[in-house]
Amino acid sequence: MNTYKLTAFEANGEKIIDEAIQAEHDEAAKELAEKLLAEKNLLDKTHRFTSPSGKLLLFHS
C-alpha cells in the first residue's frame, strides 16, 4: 500500500481537509480522492492530491 496526500483549501488559504489515503496504485487512489471530495462537497474548492513520489494527480484552483 502507498500513502497519498489530499489537501483542500478555502479561498483565504485556510486548510479544510488534510487526509492521507492508502491505495495500491495511482488510479485507485485518484478514485478514492475524488469520491471523498464529492462526499464533502469540496470538488469546487482549491485542492491537490499527490502521490508518495510527489506526482500531482489532481489539482483544482
Rank of each mutant, 00 (worst) to 15 (best):
T46A: 12
F9V: 14
L32N: 04
D18T: 13
A29G: 01
A8S: 15
H25F: 05
G13F: 03
D26Y: 07
A38R: 11
R48E: 12
D26P: 06
N41P: 03
I16V: 15
R48F: 07
N41C: 00
F9S: 03
L36W: 00
K15F: 03
A20K: 13
R48Y: 06
H47M: 01
K30F: 06
D44R: 15
E19T: 06
D18P: 11
E27G: 04
I21N: 07
I16W: 04
A38Y: 03
A20W: 10
R48C: 08
T46I: 01
E10F: 10
F9C: 08
E14V: 07
L6A: 13
E27Y: 02
K35E: 01
A28P: 02
E14L: 07
K40N: 14
K40Y: 00
K35W: 05
E39Y: 08
H47N: 11
K5R: 11
E24M: 07
H47A: 03
L43R: 11
K45Y: 15
I21W: 02
L42A: 09
I16C: 07
F9A: 02
I21H: 10
D44M: 08
K35S: 08
D18I: 08
E24S: 00
E27A: 12
L43D: 07
I17A: 15
N41W: 01
Q22S: 10
E10Y: 11
L6M: 04
T46K: 07
A11V: 14
L36I: 05
K5D: 03
H47V: 04
K15C: 00
E14Q: 13
A33T: 04
L32Q: 15
R48A: 02
D18H: 13
F9T: 00
E39V: 07
N41F: 13
E39Q: 14
R48D: 09
D44S: 13
I16E: 05
E10H: 15
L42E: 12
N12W: 01
K45G: 06
A38T: 00
L42G: 09
L43Y: 05
